[in-house]
Each structure stands twice: as C-alpha cells, then as structure tokens.
C-alpha cells in the first residue's frame, strides 16, 4: 500500500524530469536538459561564487524578514486592537500597500544610500535598496494578518479577561497577543514567500546574490546556470518557509490538530 503510493509519487518526479529531458533534447537549442544542468550544478557547488551568492541572498532575506516582523507584528496588533490608533495610521499605509514592492526599485536605487561599514577586519556593504524591497514584500502580509488576527478574536475573550481583573495591558498580553498569533503565523509564512519573490527581482535588477547570478547567467550565455540559480532559490525558499512553519507550530501548541 505505502510502497505503491511511493512508487506513484516517484513516478511523478521522474515524469517531470523525463518531460524536461525530452523537451531539452527536441526543443529549442537554448534549453539545457537535466544532464547539462546537473553538470553545471556539480561545477558550481565547488565554487565560492555560488556560496557567496547563497550567503548574500540568505542574509538579505533574513535581515529584511526580521525587520518586517519586528515592525509589522506590533504595529498590526496595535492597529487591530485600538480603533483610534488604527484610524490615524492605517489609511496612510493603505495608500502605499497596493504598490507592488518591485515597482519601488527605481525609487530605492535613487533615494536609498548604500550603507558601508567595517567591523575590524571584515567590511560590509549593505544594499539598503534591496533590503527595503525585500522588507516591503514581507511587511504587508505580516501587518495585514496581524490586524486580521486581532479582529478575529471575539470581544468576549477581552470581556472575560477584564471581568477576571485584567488591566488593559494584561488583556493585550494575555488575550490579544496570543489570540492573534495563529494569524500572525500565517502572515509570516506568506511574508517569507513574498520576501524571496521580491528579493530575486531586486537582485536581478540592482545586483548581487542569487538573483543576479541567475540573471547574469542569461546575459553571459551560460544557460545551464540559470537553472542552477532557479533550483537553488527554490530550495532556499522552501527551507525558509519550512523553518517559519516549524517555529510557528512550536509557538502554537494549543491549536486544534497541532501535534506539539
């Protein structure tokens, strides 16, 4: 039973590779087949260019995502909790929200400076534009889900806490924050995905990291490397979402259907 299922699932992956192989062999000259890509992969795994690109992209996503969470979660909880605070802040954010982060790229290149600093022997240069675009990608899903999370909490939970003697900040700490957490978690998972989408676009356009590696493989004519880049980005995106999911689940042992 189980082996049959695994056979079918492996057939699925093999089928995908088979289609790629056939299209690569019969299709346009420019499309490398799986073998060529695997060859390029082997070559790249030993090269520092590859690992530098991975490190740079990962650090950018990590940094931008962390900032987005640190700002988006408290801000969203407050907007959801206090109508008045929300009225003063949310409309301004709503003006900016519909603009896809990628459309900010020309603006960020113009307006945001690069930050260069050195720590002893190592010196860093942070492309704040790329970090900002990545941040925007993660920020709005996290913000919106935090707001929605608070609004989804039935008022009676707050009432119950108040009747048990909780002060406002205690209600926030014991009802609003934990009650919104499942939704915040959803926002983080979505935000992590969108952080990668926007990071790749920003890197293709303004440089560095896996996005640029993939793009310059195209402009430089080493086509198999395009697919090395895509696959690597896919794996990293998958791994980071899985980590976010895992951390989220460990914070939500009380959810129905949770295994923790």
């Amino acid at each position: 039973m189980d082996t049959a299922k695994w056979a079918k699932r492996s057939a699925s992956i093999l089928g995908l590779l088979g289609v790629w192989f056939v299209v690569g062999a019969l299709g346009p000259q420019t499309l490398p087949g799986p073998a060529a890509v695997a060859g390029a992969f082997v070559g790249y795994v030993g090269s520092p260019v590859y690992w530098n690109a991975i490190t740079l992209s990962t650090l950018r996503v990590l940094g931008a995502f962390t900032i987005a969470a640190l700002i988006g979660v408290p801000l969203g909880l407050l907007i959801g909790w206090s109508v008045v605070f929300g009225d003063f802040t949310y409309p301004a954010l709503e003006l900016v929200r519909p603009i896809p982060p990628i459309a900010w790229i020309p603006f960020t290149i113009l307006v945001l400076p690069s930050l260069a600093f050195s720590l002893g022997i190592a010196s860093f240069e942070i492309d704040t534009g790329i970090v900002f675009i990545t941040f925007l990608g993660a920020f709005f899903p996290i913000l919106l889900n935090a707001i929605a999370g608070v609004r989804s909490i039935d008022d009676e939970y707050s009432r119950a806490a108040q009747s048990l003697g909780a002060a406002d900040w205690q209600t926030f700490r014991h009802v609003i924050y934990p009650g919104a957490l499942p939704s915040v978690h959803t926002g983080m998972v979505v935000g992590m995905g969108l952080a990668w989408v926007n990071l790749v676009a920003a890197e293709m356009i303004s440089g560095g990291g896996l996005g640029f590696m993939t793009w310059s493989a195209y402009t430089g004519g080493s086509y198999p490397v395009i697919f090395v880049g895509m696959i690597t980005i896919g794996i990293l995106g998958y791994v980071s979402s899985t980590i976010v999911r895992y951390i989220g689940a460990s914070q939500l042992p009380w959810m129905e259907g949770s295994t923790a």
Partner: peptide, 28 residues
C-alpha cells in the same frame, strides 16, 4: 466597567483556548 467582584460565565465557552486548564484557572 467590568470588575473582578462580578464574575461572568458566557454562553459560548470562553476559556482562553491558548492557555491550559491550569493557566485558565489561575488567570484571575
């Protein structure tokens, strides 16, 4: 306003789902 001298039990159960029974009991 609400006050702990006036306790309330709600129609739909309002135990805090994110707290254990022990934590709920200790809440007040």
């Amino acid at each position: 306003g609400p006050d702990p001298s006036r306790g309330v039990v709600f129609q739909s159960n309002r135990l805090f789902p994110w707290k254990t029974i022990g934590q709920n009991a200790r809440f007040g």
